[in-house]
């Protein structure tokens, strides 16, 4: 493109910048994005809460059990125990069905689990059904799972395969996670190392609502004063 160059004087150019920016004087961009991205870290809980495998003894109580068409049916089984960090967890189901021929597989219905994320935050996990494989120590949940935490996060997964032994969770279906004004969706998610690493792939999208953004700014106000 032809370069027509004139002798610019500095003041006019500075003035230009001033005019251009006058209207957006009080606004801050990156500073706003970043605190909200912190919310992304909140996802750590999903794996952490699900897969914090029990360290201490586990007691299971079953209100009644019966055998029907070749399956041992346990009514309202309840599993309780403590995680490595000595935090209580529990897992209930309305029914557990164990096939007498392949006893390693247990079908669970109406799963309701309470798993500690940390001493102040507990994740409640609900799923209509799931298959627990005792030998491989895995839990396969083919239908929707809803996870809510005391600090207000709601995560919806369409399915999940949990390797309890390794502390991994995989889903190749859509996930939708919302926490305090931050929302994340993706078409697949993997949680590794007991929730230490979360990987979202395929159409990852994070949406931050304005009120969340303002909270980020106030939080920053504090740090500014510090330096």
């Amino acid at each position: 493109m032809p370069q027509r160059v004139t002798k610019p004087d500095n003041a006019s150019r500075v003035a230009e910048f001033h005019q251009a920016q006058h209207h957006s004087r009080r606004v801050r961009w990156l500073k706003v994005v970043l605190p909200s991205v912190a919310a992304v870290m909140a996802l750590g809980f999903v794996g952490y809460s699900y897969v914090s495998s029990p360290a201490k003894g586990v007691d299971v109580d079953i209100s009644s059990s019966a055998v029907s068409d070749g399956k041992l049916v346990m009514a309202s089984p309840k599993l309780e125990g403590f995680t490595k960090d000595n935090l209580p967890y529990s897992m209930k189901a309305s029914r557990a069905l164990q096939n007498l021929t392949s006893t390693g597989i247990i079908e669970l219905e109406d799963i309701d689990a309470k798993l500690p994320v940390d001493d102040k935050n507990v994740a409640t996990i609900g799923a209509s059904r799931g298959t627990y494989d005792r030998d491989k120590n895995t839990l396969d949940i083919p239908s929707e799972i809803v996870v809510t935490t005391t600090d207000g996060m709601v995560a919806k997964l369409k399915s999940a395969f949990i390797d309890i032994g390794k502390g991994d969770l995989k889903t190749t279906d859509a996930v939708d996670i919302a926490l305090k004004g931050t929302n994340i969706t993706a078409d697949s998610m993997i949680i590794l190392e007991n929730g230490k690493v979360l990987v979202f792939e395929k159409r990852v999208r994070m949406q931050l609502s304005p009120d969340k953004v303002k909270a980020g700014q106030q939080a920053d106000g504090g740090t500014n004063a510090a330096n």
């Binding site: 500075v14 001033h18 957006s24 706003v32 990852v204 994070m206 931050l208 304005p210």
Partner: peptide, 21 residues
């Protein structure tokens, strides 16, 4: 020069997209 243009307004939602996170 002033570069206010790169600032954000606090009253609009932010959308981040990527292939992987």
């Amino acid at each position: 020069g002033r570069l206010g243009g790169l600032k954000l307004s606090g009253d609009q939602p932010i959308q981040i997209e990527s292939d992987k996170l």
